[in-house]
Each structure stands twice: as structure tokens, then as C-alpha cells.
Simulated assay, not measured.
Amino acid sequence: MQVIGLCRFSYPAIGGFQVEHDSIEARIAYLYAEARLEERFRLFETLALPCLREQTDQDFDLIVVIGNSLPPHHEDRLRALVADMPQVQIRKEPPRKQREVMKEILNQARRDPKQPCLQFRHDDDDAISVDFVERLRATVTDCRGLFRNHKTAAVDFNKGFVAEVSADGISATEVFRPFYVAALGMYVRGGCPLTIMNFAHERIPRFMPAVSISDAPMWVRSHNGSNDSRQKPVKAIEVEPLTPAQEGEFEARFAIRRDHVASVFSSS
């Protein structure tokens, strides 16, 4: 069964952001500001990509969506970061309505629309467990009796970490958050044009059956200076520096390595 992931890398969509801008030009200027993009690249390199590179099941596709106005030197840097990942396709799009363009991209990525597929979203500043794709497939197999009776169904791995990363390393705290973006998958029946982007992630169980799994941390949500969802006043989440044992867990489960984080974030 084809597994398709979708990652938006500073794509200047019309809508789809909690922070509003007066014009698409203002949104592009905000997204492509050098300091902001530098932070996004560092998070992408240290959090979002290593866990995909080390998936125990390598049979998946990842579409990285960028704006067709992304400056060439940034596009070159992005392509260099994923050059060793055959699963990755970079898709350039002009500014369009967020859900419209993402639904279109996901449906075009289906190699055989008559066959069922699995879909997930992957934010460019988050990580998923290295066994996410494997466990997503296994859950669908375990629940085949339920899933075959529905056009769509969700698989929600709802335990993870909130983390902050810097030149000093990694600080984090474990949290329980159902139907977060990371490690949330969706089954789509063959012939069905619905996609994971048809639904707000926190509302997805209103529209389909969902299987929730809480046995192990399956994602890392980074808190950083450019989180769209945290540009407005929100409750702070306290994090603590990882212990050596936790650093080992982050490396084993998410391929996040303290030395790599410190090196990338300390570079000029």
C-alpha cells in the first residue's frame, strides 16, 4: 500500500496560517526573511529529515512543497539536504489556496488511485519515530475489518515530546496530545478523492473512525521562534535539558542527535 507524506517548506499559501498578512507579498516577505529561513533550515536538517532518513520501512513517498518564488540559493540548499533521499519529491507551486493545492498534490501523487493508500503530514520543524511508517502499515493490517467498511480512517499516535533545540542541545518534556499533526496517519480507500488535507487535524475524528495508540512516544514537536501556531499568546510549556538516557532515547526513537543539533545551531 502506497504511503504518501506531505511537507510544506515555507510555502506561501493563501490561507492556512494563523498569523494573517495584508497581502501575499507581505506573507512572502515574512516567510522568506533570512533569519526565519535560517532557523527553518536548521530545524529541517536536525529534526524533520533524520527521522525520515532512518525509517525502518523505507517504502514511502514524501512531497516537499515550496513556493515558486523561493530564492534560488534557498532552493539549492533545500535540494542539497534531500539529495540522498530518493523518496523525496520537491514540488514548486505559486501561491494558491492552502487546502485546494495540497489536496490536488496528494491526489496526483497516488500511483494508482483505484488502490487504497496511507497519508500523513510532516511539518518541517517536527520529528516522527523512526518506526512510524512501519507501525502505520501494521495498524491498518491489524484493523482491516474496521477500515474496509469506511472510505477513510485515522491512525493517531498521541504521545510525544515538546522540545526546544539550540547550540546548547535539547530540552524537552513528554506530553499527551491526541490528533496532533505529527504521527497522525489516514487511510484512504481506493477510488476515494479525499485526502488528509481535507480535514483540520484536531477535528479528524468527527468525520471518520480513528484508532488511537498510546504505547510509546512517536513524535517530537519543536517550539521555536517561527511556530505559526505560537505567534499569538499561548500557554508556555516547561521543558528540561535531556538526561544522557533521554538523549539516547531521542537518538534511537527519532534519530535526533545532540551533537548534530549543537553543531548545526552553533554554525554562523
Rank of each mutant, 00 (worst) to 15 (best):
R8V: 08
I24W: 04
C51N: 09
K159C: 11
D259W: 10
E39W: 03
F176Q: 14
F199G: 02
G5P: 04
D168E: 15
G185D: 02
A252I: 01
A252D: 06
E238A: 13
L70Q: 02
S226T: 09
R137Q: 03
F265D: 01
C192H: 11
G67A: 13
P116E: 08
I213N: 07
S266W: 05
H122E: 13
R137L: 03
A236L: 14
F254R: 02
E25Q: 12
E174G: 01
E54T: 11
A29Q: 12
G67K: 01
L194Y: 13
E34W: 13
L194G: 10
E45N: 11
S214M: 13
A29P: 06
N68G: 10
M218D: 03
K235G: 07
A255S: 14
H260P: 06
V130L: 12
I14G: 10
T46D: 05
A109N: 03
I170K: 01
G160H: 11
M186E: 03
F17N: 04
V133A: 13
S222A: 15
D142W: 14
V220G: 01
I14T: 07
A210L: 12
Q2N: 11
V64G: 01
V19G: 12
G185Q: 02
R144T: 12
D142A: 12
R42C: 04
L78K: 01
E249C: 07
V181F: 12
V220Y: 00
D215W: 15
P12A: 05
Q55N: 13
Q87P: 07
K114L: 15
F179W: 14
A109M: 14
V220A: 09
L47E: 00
R206I: 10
L81P: 00
H21V: 05
E25K: 11
R53E: 04
R110H: 12
R137F: 00
Y32I: 15
K92H: 11
A154V: 02
F161V: 06
E240S: 10
S212I: 07
D126M: 14
I14H: 09
G169V: 04
D59E: 10
K235C: 11
L62K: 00
R111M: 11
N107W: 06
F199Y: 07
R110P: 02
N198G: 14
R53W: 01
F41D: 01
